[in-house]
Design a protein around this nucleic acid. Sequence first.
DNA 1: CGAGATTCATGTGAAGTATACCTTTAGGCTTAA
DNA 2: AAGCCTAAAGGTATACTTCACATGAATCTCGTA
Length: 405
Amino acid sequence: MVDVKNFLRDYAKKESLFKNKKVLQSNYTPDKVPYREDQINLLAGILAPSLRMERPSNIFLYGKTGTGKTLAIKHVTDQILEVAKESNLNLRVIYLNCKLKRIADTEYRLIAQISRELGQDIPPTGLPTDEVYKIFTKILEENKMLLLLVLDEIDEVVKNTGDKILYNLTRLNSELKNSEISIVGISNDLMFIDQVDPRVKSSLSEEELVFPPYNAIQLQKILKERSDISFEKSVIGEGVIEKCAAYAAKEHGDARRALELLRVAGELAERNNSEKIAVKFIDQAEEKIERDRVIDIVSTQPKQFKITLYSILLFSNLCSKNGNSQDIYTGDIYELYKENCLKCGTKPLTQRRIGDIIAELDMLGIINARVISKGRYGRTRRITLGVPENITKKINDMLKEGLGL
DNA sequence: CGAGATTCATGTGAAGTATACCTTTAGGCTTAA
DNA sequence: AAGCCTAAAGGTATACTTCACATGAATCTCGTA
């Protein structure tokens, strides 16, 4: 066994590679946001009227993940709040990610969550939705304020529950006497806005901003800048920044990913008692990030989702063990799923529901499930695993233990 | 041989049900005057 | 009589079930060359 005490002693003695780790964490907002000056200036211009307590136009932001949408809006709203504080304006900014399961993924939950942020307790279920709207408007009327509502990944709610919610939100202003709301919608899906009702569209996207992806050179600059602040001098090995940038550029210029890659690589280097961050740690970091992401998603899923996923993994294992790389279909999974339910004492759901669950697992990116027709032999989903094998092993073990199988 | 009909396994939409939770209301009990 | 607690009634959101119909290409059928 390793001598823990010695390890800890060494660790304490050793200088950290990091000077300021916060700078690389995803919730960090830097003072300057490189290559987004235009967007930030525009945003500031559009939102500035809020400092005179005039309602700014609603805004719609487009752009792939990690192109700085969230960062830019956070940056601008932070500054606005600071200025507002100086003159004691009742200006509120609420940021909400609509993708969060069980928090803001339906109309009821979204409005309820906003009200909660404003300090009003709302039960998770039981109230009529318009009752929740009433409570929400009541808070606004009682405390005269200007509310900037930032709805991230707004396309997700609409995909799930229709665009009624957008209509209601945009209409809200005409009902409010004392307070006003501006909505900032953020979407990764460029086609999204064209699918909503034209009336809603015109009022929701009074202003539109597009965030183009960063290219590899820009990513390098960003990484360089942040790494200078976050790491001690000269711990970054040859070609590390370039490799991080290249990785991220491959993924449609995702800067968040690039920074995370660098941070995790740093942590790995530190753990390995390395003096420098070498290129090999980036490969490891890539793997670790993906593993953590998947494990995080899987572990927060409801039980039935876990059993379904476990059944898929098991079936895929059986197939490869028997040597035949057979395709996986819904029917096979359902049979196996029922068995597994029996084993862990859970009441099986219907195949209808499992079909939906498989589709949702596909949306989460853990598996790929495409609807295909096998001609004479019917129609089904062909399922393949969406993550590398070394990770599925881990999930498999985790689920097995978690479900008591 | 080829066009059109058939077929299968399950996708998919709509409507219904179960569950968990909500508010309101009415009755019963306690309390204080 | 007023105040407080409790339980029933009547309501909702959400996850799931039930029912019925839709899908789409491999296979079958049958007329024709």
